[in-house]
Deep mutational scan, measured.
Amino acid sequence: MEVRTIKVFTTVDNINLHTQVVDMSMTYGQQFGPTYLDGADVTKIKPHNSHEGKTFYVLPNDDTLRVEAFEYYHTTDPSFLGRYMSALNHTKKWKYPQVNGLTSIKWADNNCYLATALLTLQQIELKFNPPALQDAYYRARAGEAANFCALILAYCNKTVGELGDVRETMSYLFQHANLDSCKRVLNVVCKTCGQQQTTLKGVEAVMYMGTLSYEQFKKGVQIPCTCGKQATKYLVQQESPFVMMSAPPAQYELKHGTFTCASEYTGNYQCGHYKHITSKETLYCIDGALLTKSSEYKGPITDVFYKENSYTTTIK
């Protein structure tokens, strides 16, 4: 009895394709271990004539594949690729409408935090270190965002349907971005203890939790000093293409032309909904596939993004 075979390709990165001759009487799992086709788990399936010449994702289970996976995804987590594939199996079914010149995501599976993050990423200057993220990001900007969303979920250790947080998501993504040249110098002034300067680099240099107003941050924000008295913390120097200011959701007025974009969060910790506000020729609110415009805006804002380049204080 002759062994019926077909020729397929296996890959971990969709760049390096490895030619395989597979036995049609055995499952993919018996031949390769966990195997995925377009995100779908085909591990328990036997090869079919229609699979001839198709590319299958496999887990990096030998040295060659491990090197290829690390170079593309910059992670050695053995569960990463499987999590990416199972997320992709959902995100490829989502709709990605162009809204006001940006790629958004039609609401499904509690994905409003991903839509808000995706919209924000198209408006701030950011370059990702893992080629996987950078490639998928370019495709997302062009309207094909399924891979990018699935990668975000995998890097953030999230599953489809789980509630997510924009600030946490951005923080994970910033860790995989090139923020080497970003720098922030802060000064804390206390009447009792004097003053202390701190220099922050990388992710810490672009994120701040405690106030939404970048102007206020430049002037000074009140913080408790270690001595128990009130101290003032203010920005001395900022070198970065953008800054992200966050605070627990509270009524906040966004003035046209003073910011790049913002995240609105309605609801409580267990259950809520994100919308995205962007400042173009007027203010726009993007909620999944829905767009509304207004000249002014007041609502429960939790993150505001500002364009920056270089700032030095005039406070002496």
Score class of each variant (00 low, 15 high):
P248L: 15
K275H: 00
V42H: 13
C190Q: 01
G220Y: 02
N187A: 11
R167K: 08
K280C: 13
Q175E: 08
G228I: 02
V203C: 08
P248R: 13
P60Q: 04
Q98F: 08
V58A: 06
Q175G: 08
R66K: 14
F174V: 04
G220S: 04
V304S: 01
G82V: 15
K275M: 07
G267T: 11
N89P: 06
E144P: 05
P131F: 02
N61R: 13
E162L: 01
E68Y: 05
F305G: 00
L102E: 07
S171W: 15
L88F: 11
D41Y: 07
T192H: 11
T75K: 09
E281C: 02
G143A: 04
G101N: 08
D13G: 06
Q238L: 01
K201D: 07
P34V: 15
Y274R: 02
G272V: 03
K92S: 10
K293L: 09
T260A: 12
T258N: 09
G228C: 01
V243H: 03
V42N: 07
T312Y: 10
A205C: 00
L121R: 06
N187T: 09
E68N: 05
C156W: 01
H176A: 04
D165G: 08
K54G: 12
A145K: 05
E2K: 12
S181P: 04
Y311E: 11
F32S: 07
E296V: 14
H276T: 06
D63G: 07
A262E: 00
K106T: 13
K229D: 15
P131A: 05
S86L: 12
Q195E: 15
T278C: 12
A247M: 07
N111A: 06
Q31T: 14
D109A: 05
I315Q: 15
V67N: 15
M209C: 15
R4W: 12
A150L: 03
T169Q: 04
I286V: 10
T91H: 05
V166M: 09
L65C: 08
I152K: 01
M170Y: 04
A231F: 02
G299N: 03
T226I: 12
G210S: 04
F70R: 10
Q134A: 12
Q175I: 06
A177V: 08
N16E: 07
N14D: 10
A289G: 11
L114W: 00
D135A: 09
E68K: 08
D63Q: 10
T159C: 14
Y28P: 06
G194R: 02
A108G: 04
R184C: 03
Q251C: 13
Q196C: 09
K229G: 15
D77V: 04
Y284E: 11
Y84L: 06
H74D: 05
K255E: 13
V188E: 06
E264N: 01
V58W: 03
T266G: 11
L290N: 15
V21W: 12
V189R: 09
T10D: 02
I15Y: 11
L65F: 09
R139V: 07
H51N: 08
T314M: 14
N187L: 11
Y214C: 04
S213Q: 03
G194N: 03
V188G: 07
T199A: 08
P248Y: 15
V206N: 00
Q237V: 11
T314N: 14
Y57L: 09
A145Q: 03
F128P: 06
N147T: 12
L200S: 10
M24G: 13
K95A: 12
S79I: 10
C149P: 04
R83H: 07
R83S: 07
T314E: 09
K275P: 00
D62N: 15
Y172M: 10
D109R: 03
G210H: 01
C261I: 06
L37A: 11
T232Y: 09
A87L: 07
V243A: 01
A132L: 03
R4D: 12
K93I: 07
N49D: 14
Y172T: 12
T76R: 10
I152C: 07
Y284V: 14
I223C: 14
E2Y: 09
T302H: 00
D77C: 12
L151W: 02
H74L: 15
T103N: 02
S295G: 12
A115Y: 05
Y155W: 04
D135W: 08
L119S: 05
A154T: 12
